[in-house]
Structure formats: structure tokens, C-alpha cells
């Protein structure tokens, strides 16, 4: 493979600088001792200290995590079913409508989803809270899970399923002992995707929230509307840190698996 030309190297460097500099600046300033965001007043971790004593933020974080876990789990079950129906479902009444509904939330603006779900919940339940946020988040997150799962289903060898049913397995057994283990990595990344989507959502949650169900993004949004604050910088740094560690670990595990597979193939030969 030939080396990268200077032109490609420059665009890549500039592009990644654009992607990463804002986050790096934010992380650096979270360790600033002063209240003024731009004047460097020495290294300090005091904003992390005040953050951990801020009850409102801690409560919001706890609500957000519970919502995200419930959403991810529900969305993974529904999204896996939806992905399976899209790829293996064959023909049924309303198929076009179904695939349209399974894709549309991916590109639908949040304000429309939020408003429409709020109006539904007002008719259905009257009051809002954590449950309504979970239901709303599940609805759009399951579509992402369905895309991830269906692309995995499309790429795997269908004859494995056919072999299982030829050998007398019921469709349910085939799904549990052949299909599910093969698509499991996709199901898992679907869960993680749904979890982060729920963690991240401000607009939909703002519409369908109720008393006692303030999520972290709602809290952050109301704080940053007034301007940059060192406490939010500290909170953001923690969130970026968690995501980075998570993504790096996942990709390392993945890499080790690939290396292991290559080794296995070599010894097999």
C-alpha cells in the first residue's frame, strides 16, 4: 500500500482537528481554577467537587440512567423483533406501512416526535413522568436497533437456519439456538446505541417529561442557556470520558476477537 499523499494527510489532520479541538478545549477548561471560563487561573479539580455535591445534578443523573437502561432493554427486544420481521418476515398485510414506520423515526425531527407523543400521552394517561419518557425513547430507539439487527441478518448465511429446520428444529428453537447467537453482537451494539440515544435526548424528553422526571440533558440545557459554566465543563468531561473508555474497550475486544479468528484460521490451515 502506498503512503498517504500530502494532500490527503492535510485534509485528514485539519478534519480531525475540527472534530476534536472543541472537546479538548472543553476538557482543559474544566480543570480551570477560576470562575471565568477563558482566564486561566491555575489547575484545579474544584468544579468536580462542587458537581458531586450538587443534589439536583445527581438526581437528574440517576433518573437519566434508569430511563436509559429501561429504554435500551425495551428497544432492543422490540427492535430485534422489528429487524427480524423486516428481513425474514416475508409478505404480510401492511408490510410497506410497517417498513415505513420502522425507518421514519430515524430521520423525523425531534420536535415533531416530541410534540406528537406528548399529545398522545395527554389523551392516554393525562399525566407525564418517567414512564412516558421511557415509552417515547423506546419508540425512536427501537428503529435504530432494527436497522443494526436487520443489516446483520442480511449479511449472514441463511442456509444455517434452513439446516436447523431441516433437522427438525421449530422456528422458535431455530431462532434461539442459531439466529440469536449469530446476530448477538448486533443485538448488543443495538442495546448500547439505544442506551446512548436515550442518555443524549433533550428535545423529546422535554416534551414528555413531568414533575420529578428531570433528566440530565434537560438540566444541562437549562444551565447552559445562560452561558458557559465550569461546572458543566466538568460534567461534560466526565461524560466524554465514560464514552471514550466504553468505545475504546469495545473496539479492543473486537480487535482481539478478529486477531484470534485469524490465528484460528491459520492453525486450521
Amino acid at each position: 500500500m502506498k503512503k498517504l499523499s500530502w494532500f490527503n494527510l492535510t485534509t485528514l489532520t485539519l478534519g480531525f482537528a475540527f472534530l476534536y479541538i472543541p472537546m479538548i478545549v472543553l476538557i482543559v477548561y474544566s480543570f480551570n481554577g477560576g470562575r471565568l471560563v477563558t482566564v486561566w487561573a491555575g489547575f484545579s479539580t474544584k468544579w468536580y467537587g462542587t458537581l458531586f455535591h450538587n443534589e439536583a445534578f445527581l438526581d437528574a443523573a440517576w433518573v437519566t440512567i434508569r430511563v436509559a437502561v429501561a429504554t435500551a432493554t425495551l428497544a432492543t427486544i422490540l427492535g430485534t423483533l422489528a429487524g427480524y420481521v423486516l428481513v425474514r418476515g416475508g409478505r404480510f398485510w401492511g408490510r410497506t406501512l410497517f417498513s415505513g414506520m420502522a425507518y421514519a423515526p430515524l430521520v423525523m425531527p425531534d420536535v415533531i416526535l416530541g410534540l406528537s407523543l406528548l399529545l398522545l400521552f395527554k389523551v392516554m394517561f393525562g399525566s407525564m413522568g418517567m414512564t412516558t419518557i421511557i415509552l417515547a425513547h423506546t419508540t425512536f430507539a427501537m428503529c435504530y436497533v432494527s436497522v443494526v439487527v436487520s443489516s446483520r441478518l442480511l449479511s449472514f448465511d441463511k442456509s444455517l437456519e434452513e439446516a436447523a429446520s431441516d433437522l427438525g428444529a421449530t422456528p422458535f428453537d431455530t431462532f434461539m439456538s442459531v439466529t440469536l447467537p449469530i446476530i448477538f453482537p448486533a443485538v448488543l451494539s443495538g442495546w448500547l446505541l439505544a442506551f446512548t440515544l436515550s442518555l443524549d435526548d433533550l428535545v423529546i424528553a422535554s416534551f414528555v417529561t413531568g414533575p420529578g422526571a428531570t433528566t440530565l440533558p434537560i438540566k444541562i440545557y437549562s444551565a447552559v442557556r445562560l452561558g458557559v459554566s465550569p461546572e458543566i465543563n466538568a460534567l461534560s468531561t466526565i461524560m466524554i470520558g465514560i464514552v471514550t473508555v466504553g468505545v475504546l474497550t469495545a473496539s479492543l475486544i473486537n480487535k482481539r476477537k478478529v486477531v484470534q479468528r485469524l490465528k484460528d484460521e491459520k492453525t486450521a490451515n
Binding site: Y20, L26, T38, T196, D200, M239, V247, S251
Partner: peptide, 23 residues
């Protein structure tokens, strides 16, 4: 991975990070 990593990071935080830069 460098392209995907920001995608997993909070959208709100990424927008917010520009407030400290462009002010």
C-alpha cells in the same frame, strides 16, 4: 473509530463546546 467516537458523545455537549470557543 475517530469519526464514530464523537457520534457516541452527547450531542448537547458537542454543541455546548462551541459556546466556549465562539464567544
Amino acid at each position: 473509530m475517530l469519526v464514530i467516537l464523537p457520534f457516541w458523545t452527547s450531542f448537547l455537549i458537542r454543541v455546548y463546546s462551541w459556546m466556549g470557543i465562539l464567544g
